[in-house]
Design a protein around this nucleic acid. Sequence first.
DNA 1: ATGGTTGATGAAACCAGTTACATGTGTCAA
DNA 2: TTGACACATGTAACTGGTTTCATCAACCAT
Lengths: 360, 360
Amino acid sequence: MQRSTNRKRANLRDVAAAAGVSVATVSRVMNAPETVAEATRKRVEEAMNSLHWVPSAAARAINTGRTRFVGALVPTLDNAIFARVLASMESRLAAHRLSLVVATTDNDPAQEAEKAKGLVDIGAEGLIVSGITHAPQFYSLIERCQLATVSTSFYDPGYRLPTIGYDNAAAARTALTHLTDLGHRRIAVVHGPSSSNDRTRSRIAGLEGHSPKPDLSFHEVPLSIAGGCEAGRGILQAEEQPSAVLCLSDVLASGVLFELQREGVAVPQEKSVMGLDDLAASAHLFPALTTVHLPVSRMGTAAADAIASWVETQQAPTPSLLKSKLVVRDSTAFLSAAAKPGTGNRDGSDSDGQSIPGTA
Amino acid sequence: MQRSTNRKRANLRDVAAAAGVSVATVSRVMNAPETVAEATRKRVEEAMNSLHWVPSAAARAINTGRTRFVGALVPTLDNAIFARVLASMESRLAAHRLSLVVATTDNDPAQEAEKAKGLVDIGAEGLIVSGITHAPQFYSLIERCQLATVSTSFYDPGYRLPTIGYDNAAAARTALTHLTDLGHRRIAVVHGPSSSNDRTRSRIAGLEGHSPKPDLSFHEVPLSIAGGCEAGRGILQAEEQPSAVLCLSDVLASGVLFELQREGVAVPQEKSVMGLDDLAASAHLFPALTTVHLPVSRMGTAAADAIASWVETQQAPTPSLLKSKLVVRDSTAFLSAAAKPGTGNRDGSDSDGQSIPGTA
DNA sequence: ATGGTTGATGAAACCAGTTACATGTGTCAA
DNA sequence: TTGACACATGTAACTGGTTTCATCAACCAT
């Protein structure tokens, strides 16, 4: 571990000089070793090692025009769903020999635009964002840079950027239909902040005009387990008790579930609870959460493939719609006498949650 | 949105020519605008805009020697705890005007070494890793590159890399002491794969030589909610029922909790369950999880500060120990007659989980 | 002996910026 | 009037690689 006295890092010229060859030959040893004579190559490699030479990424990038990394702008890492998407993106991008730079936006378009600028400044070749609501500066940035950018979590073929996502409104509608199929009419809807989140808005909008028309009460809370608990408390305080709670996100459903248990409300006997997302944890909750599965892993790989092909071929990908799917588990059940709104009866029969064939 | 016919991106020379100035002046407009005359600057800025010029990150990096991003190698994104650390790192690094490149290693040293190589190849100025077990190639890489690298989640001042983390063994011991203080002697220990994870090994080791000496049975399962459920089932099948379950990770504790509920075992009346991590969700579970708080957010910011100062000043930071702390909630209680091991009694009195003063 | 081909290597241009140094102009005090 | 100095700007070297093209020797078939 000699801390050699020569202050600066060795460069190509140093290696070439040490090996007694030209810089071109050293470069060849790196990029096309088979074109270099065995003996020469060995000599060069020795020189590289003895000088502890490491090629400069920047210098390579300046020639190839490729930095080999893309940026992802996500609202937060605190929700498992984004961690999931990022995980699948990262692994698929690695297969394309691309790295992933993560930046969080906190659902704030201004922050997103700023971080996007930062990513461009460090040389991102492409961007992956969530949703279709962005700041004007964001659009002008990607337009000016002609930057490959795909949008996820929201399918909209008419959007100015290629979208790779699902139909949030339809997913919410699927969930609501499941509850009405079970006979529920008075339903509490729990959702995260809608003002800053177009996915949430779309899910809420998807509930409109449903037939049969249910009686919906809306609860907007922070998008977290704690938020779900808060909603749970709010619902229990309401005068007219709903027989079912539709959460537009699984983390909220988890919180609601915990809070209802804490208050001694049996799910699904007294109240049905359902989510939307299908996190890995949801299948293991007690009771196992009925939800609408969003194919976030597939979305991550699809987005990775799309951005990779875009930066590779300069051809924008086509939008892609991923199907969501109802998955019925144990947290929802037919509306029973015991769960009739307003009775306050908490005896709850021991019936299993009914399985309804998927309607997706 | 004119797709101009000139194929290649404009460069500094083009802008200089368009503005009728030298390249140096254009560069100055970027980096020291106050040294350029008002009128000239305006002319240059107009030229930049009309040519849609975007400075090349690579070209800048080659001169400054700075790429302004560091890499983080984490085992997985699927565990909320890593998402948490990354979130706090990312936000603190942003304050240092550094970006964060994320790579997952799946707890595999070989994969870690490979991804580290990839990060160096694209120009990472520093690395943040988890734990103190790494492949030889990893060490030779960072040594050869003289790469600023800090290790997290594990405090060890004697380690070859600066560590910023906590004392895993002590945290586990704290948890065990809490349970023995409550009178528990027959305790099931649930943990993730130990062969590939030095944090887990350290936590297990921390349980040794405890006084009073409890009767421990170990359950190794995948580090996930599903793994926790699996462990829960395993525990219930055991002949000698433990009165408490010590999970060396909160996600496992959550799974155990859900599974026990599913099987109708009351927590903490029949069995105490405790975790270790203190995830954001843990306080909101039902029952709220007693656990040992690991200051992962502070660790993230500390690691970010450390790596930032290292790449800035070329001075390695000093190792730093972050204190863990017992947080008693509702999932643990005094060993009661009802929960005496082996009785199979599941009546469970309705007593609240007892609060024990923190012993951290 | 000669010309063509192949293989290994080097010289130098090139990528897109930054920056040390030189130059030229204008202002002001001596 | 002149020298000192600040200010704006330009020239050209420099960063650390890649790549084109030229060179040259060895080999082989005529």
